[in-house]
Amino acid sequence: MRQVMKSFAALALLAAMATGISQVAAHHSAAMFDFSKTQTLKGKVVELRWVNPHVTLTMTGTLTADEAPGEWLMETTSPGNLVRVGGWRRDIVKPGDEVEVVFHPLRDPDKKMGLMRQLTTLSNGEVFAANIRDQEKPGLE
């Protein structure tokens, strides 16, 4: 019986690992985001994760003035593309900085996630574009 319980526990652990396992991914489509909606989030930076192929920004913020701040996770393109398209750097924000983010929300409205299109650092009003296709605009150097 003890052996059966041990086996059951081992299977349960495997099942938990299988459902909770991280998906390893490379470049992916952005179709999970709702491009018909554009929203603006104001709040404080938790962490800018400057990694390839998709940079992320976690922040606490609000969509409207009368709601309680929530924790949001924004995804965008790669560091190289952000440098070229919007003059980004790894150090344009640090934890606690006040920012405003324009984004397309995830199609699942219950999850506070989005595809970041623009970031503004509110201390100096500097705007950083994040739409990869803007690289094709005239005026290249």
Binding site: G20, S22, V24, H28, S29, R49, T56, K111
Partner: peptide
């Protein structure tokens, strides 16, 4: 350390510091 990804590839959770 690993972050969490969806089956479609986007980041869904990042471990706190």
């Amino acid at each position: 350390v690993p972050v969490q990804k969806s089956e479609w590839g986007h980041t869904t959770a990042i471990p706190a510091k």
